[in-house]
Nucleic acid binder design. Structure first.
Length: 860
RNA sequence: GGGAGCAUAGCUCAGCUGGGAGAGCACAUGCUUUACACGCAUGGGGUCGCAGGUUCGAGCCCUGCUGUUCCCACCA
């Protein structure tokens, strides 16, 4: 027997086990009878545990997957975990420092990696357990990890292929360097933050002339690596100086003045110090003018041996020292405040340093072209559409991708360097000897790959690629990808060009973008703020279904949402409402009620019509990934129509043992459960298992289909409901206690509709006895009258009413009605409207006008 | 410097292809109505940011403005 209150804790583990035991999550690659529907899970990072954003994302994916499963697709939700290179390495390093007081360098590469694997095993398992709590219907048998054997094979294959295609190269370039993580980063891993800095104007003496040339810089310490000063070739002020030499202060070097178009005459002084090793533009200028390159910062962003007396100083200290020395020399002309963007490491938030360094790069132009085309042509589409612009803008301006990282945790680059001749060998198998000189002294590149290098292969590496596995053949390309807007570049873009380049097809046709979950004040949930909400706590408090419903309902596509406990409470209440409605139904329905019976009453036809409308709309919303709207409609339908009205309407019939009402209730409830199942899977399955006549789990039931609609009867029922609402409102206004029943006379043209509903009208409108007639009473004395579109209602309650007030009220209603009539008549008299508006709209307005006129007549 | 989003009830937000201004919470009043107080009924509360335009008709489409958030970008 069902408890009075739904208790998720008792239900959820039991139901999840039932699903697992039933094998419902498993997708069979040998099943060739059904169309497939696949989503690859964005693999959570092994850094720690699931956060609220994962709950949001997993809820969305599970809704889509469960809907498709019920529609009969061979459905695969492919789960897994990401090794998350830098992020995890940082976490483990932090952990080791705190727990054991050691650094990774103390341990050495091998030993350190053992610790990371230990971490991975612990947190990877925990993440999967947490994900299961959310009710996710993943095919856990296929769970993958970005550094498992298969993924590693895929990574190596891709690296080698790109190398063979000439799309991967090792080169000396300016890259973003994080001095704390001591690794290179890609452009996409740098966050730019606007901050107030300074613009220092420094005088550089021109050789053999008492004159100076003033440069403006935001990073004065880099002047130690200057190898030129550049001016615009068309700048009249400096034309005569081009080719001359400047004595670089604080050093003993002399550097040329060159002319380059890159220099803006308007900005600063129009003279730019050129520091090829510490600025990407300067690097380009240096290439054009064949300038010397001097690196002055080391991997910790401290001045190196090229910095003369500043050697060993951190960049911050070096800056102060340089400024002080320049001031002492009288070479600091002025200092201005200056707002500019400073790059920060995505992971540790340290300010990045542009540094020239030998790194591995993926050449992007060729790869980007088809990835741009497939979105432009609509082969791959973003939902909502606006994100395709974000994607295209990035892809069209993409620069080569720096993929090497000076880390230990990750896929080690499969390149081997001959220690004798310097030859680089990139191969699928570890080479035994150098192909050029025959030396066996080969050393593997110590760097690892960007973590996103392996993530980019996720949709097919998880299916077995590069091997032609049955799973790959069956499930690739996948259908949908769900991801947050913040990783469109980092991940989405790279999966798309990877899929096209290696398999000839984009990895999915639809990218559903979601926003992020913020705290109740709209702030990002973060560790430093301590405002993160643990989804597991919320599950314990309100239940998984309430959590899922709360993150889905009323959230616009691609929009951020906020966490409010009140919203979870509302959804828990909703679950409880559904629970109790089902409990009520179970008190009446029998296995004989599973088939819809003939002889439907007005209210039956109404609720069935509404159900079928909702089925159509919700299905449509789901097909368009409008999950929030779909969930909202179901909430409203179940609570506001099924529970508040239909169940109340049929109570008298159920007490009479009416089997027709039972069969309708059964149908509406079961279809509602099915429609709700993708959103709130646990409670719907639990109720389903309790219902009579159920032979299979709801998770694999057929998605409901609309049946015969009764639009006229549905409208008729709405008129009866209007009358009930009107009576309730008047009684409430007049403070008539519900216990005080009063006789009711209904004067209406639709006598049949009201006649059939006498029993429930009595219950819902507090009527003792009801007379339905088509003729108005001769005398209105002592009667309170109410006017609705379909009826005039008379209650012997006049003694409760101030007659003057009542007269005024009627006059007010009349005036309002007349004003509406006037407006409608004007509208209908407008040929522009009648000829141009769609006929059904015009017709609707005509009907409305007629109804208003009827009301007017009754009010006279 | 580019691009995008948002601005709707006290709060948080829905509103899909233009035709009814909505929900939850909060608030007020009244209810032990035989599923549910995690409940029921009723009610108050909005110039849909501002100004124009298109249209028979605009919260929705167009233009401009204001405020706000975010993304991208190599003016030192």
């Amino acid at each position: 027997m069902m408890e009075k209150t739904y208790d998720p804790k008792q239900v959820e583990p039991k139901i999840y086990k039932m699903w697992l035991d039933g094998g419902y999550f498993h997708a069979d690659e040998n099943d060739n009878t059904r169309e497939t529907f696949t989503i690859a899970m964005p693999p959570p990072n092994v850094t720690s545990q699931l956060h609220y954003g994962h709950a949001f994302e997993h809820a969305m994916i599970d809704v889509i997957i469960r809907h498709k499963r019920m529609q009969g697709y061979n459905t695969l939700w492919m789960p897994g975990i990401d090794h998350a290179g830098i992020a995890t390495q940082i976490r483990v390093e932090e952990f080791l420092r705190k727990e054991q007081g050691v650094t990774r360098h103390d341990l050495g590469r091998e030993k350190f990696l053992e610790h990371v694997w230990e971490w991975k095993n612990k947190y990877g398992d925990r993440i999967i357990e947490q994900s299961k709590l959310l009710g996710t219907s993943c095919d856990w048998e296929r769970t993958r990890f970005t550094m498992d054997e298969g993924c590693s094979k895929a990574v190596r294959e891709v690296f080698v292929r790109l190398y063979e295609q000439g799309l991967i190269y090792k080169g000396d370039r300016i890259i973003n360097w994080c001095p704390k993580c001591t690794t290179a980063l890609s452009d996409a891993e740098v966050e730019h933050e606007e901050s107030e800095g300074k613009l220092w104007h420094i005088k550089y003496p021109i050789k053999c002339s008492g004159e100076f040339l003033t440069v403006a810089t935001t990073r004065p310490e880099t002047m130690l690596g200057d190898t030129a000063v550049a001016v615009n070739p068309n700048d009249e002020r400096y034309k005569h100086l081009v080719g001359k030499t400047v004595v670089l202060p604080l050093t003993d070097r002399e550097i040329p003045i060159v002319a380059d178009e890159y220099v803006e005459t308007e900005f600063g002084t129009g003279c730019v110090k050129i520091t090829p090793c510490h600025d990407p533009n300067d690097f380009e200028v240096a290439l054009r003018h064949d300038l010397e390159r001097i690196l002055v910062l080391d991997e910790n962003a401290c001045v190196n041996e090229n910095g003369g007396k500043y050697k060993g100083l951190t960049r911050e200290k070096a800056r102060l020292a340089v400024i002080k020395d320049l001031t002492d020399l009288g070479l600091l002309e002025k200092t201005e405040t200056h707002i500019h963007n400073v790059g920060h490491c995505d992971r540790c938030k340290t300010i990045c340093e542009p540094i020239s360094s030998k790194q591995w790069f993926v050449r992007m132009k060729k790869l980007a072209a088809p990835a741009i085309e497939c979105v432009k042509s609509g082969e791959v589409r973003f939902v909502p559409e606006r994100f395709s612009k974000v994607y295209l803008n990035w892809m069209e301006n993409v620069r080569d991708w720096c993929v090497s990282r000076q880390l230990w945790w990750g896929h080690r680059i499969p390149a081997f360097i001959c220690q004798d001749c310097g030859e680089i060998i990139v191969a699928r198998e570890d080479p035994a000897a150098c192909g050029k000189c025959g030396s066996v002294r080969l050393e593997q590149e110590s760097d690892v790959l960007d973590t996103w290098f392996s993530s980019a292969l996720w949709p097919f590496a998880t299916l077995g690629w590069p091997d032609e596995t049955p799973a790959l053949q069956r499930f690739y390309p996948t259908q949908v990808m769900v991801m947050g807007y913040e990783i469109i570049f980092l991940w989405g873009a790279r999966m798309i060009f990877s899929g096209i380049n290696y398999l000839g097809k984009p990895p999915f046709h639809t990218v559903v973008i979601h926003g992020m979950v913020r705290d109740s004040e709209g702030r990002k949930m973060s560790k430093s703020l301590g405002n993160g909400v643990d989804p597991v706590d919320v599950i314990n408090e309100y239940g998984t279904d309430a959590l899922r419903m709360s993150v889905i309902t009323g959230v616009g596509p691609g929009n951020d949402t906020r966490y409010f406990p009140e919203k979870c409470e509302t959804m828990r209440n909703f679950c409880n409402k559904l629970w109790n409605a089902s409990r009520f139904a179970l008190m009446h329905v029998t296995p004989e009620d599973t088939e819809l019976k003939d002889g439907l009453c007005l209210e039956d036809k109404w609720i069935l019509t509404r159900l079928y409308q909702v089925i159509g709309e919700v299905t449509d919303n789901l097909e368009r990934y409008e999950l929030g709207v779909a969930a909202g409609k179901l909430y409203d339908f179940v609570w506001g129509e099924l529970c508040d009205w239909y169940i109340e309407l049929i109570k008298p019939r159920l007490l009479d043992g009416d089997t027709i009402a039972r069969s309708v209730l059964y149908r509406v409830l079961t279809d509602s459960l099915k429609l709700l199942h993708p959103f709130i899977p646990y409670i719907t399955e639990e109720i389903w298992q309790t219902l009579p006549g159920m032979d299979k789990a709801i998770i694999v039931c057929d998605w409901p289909k609309a049946g015969k609609m009764y639009n006229n009867e549905a409208a008729g029922m709405e008129r009866v409901m209007d009358a009930i609402r009107a009576i309730r409102a008047r009684r409430s206004e007049l403070n008539v206690p519900p216990s005080k029943k009063a006789p009711l006379t209904i004067v209406t043209e639709n006598t049949a509709d009201f006649e059939g509903g006498k029993a429930y009208i009595a219950r819902l409108a507090g009527a003792s006895e009801i007379t339905v007639t088509d003729t108005a009473p001769k005398s209105r004395d002592g009667l309170l009258s109410l006017t609705t579109t379909a009826a005039e209602l008379f209650l012997p309650l006049a003694e409760l009413v101030d007659l003057e007030e009542e007269k005024k009220r009627r006059e007010k209603q009349l005036a309002k009605t007349r004003a509406e009539i006037k407006a409608l008549e004007a509208k209908l008299a407008n040929p522009g409207f009648t000829s141009k508006a769609p006929p059904q709209v015009v017709e609707g307005e005509r009907v409305k006008l007629e109804e208003l006129k009827k009301i007017e007549k009754k009010l006279l």
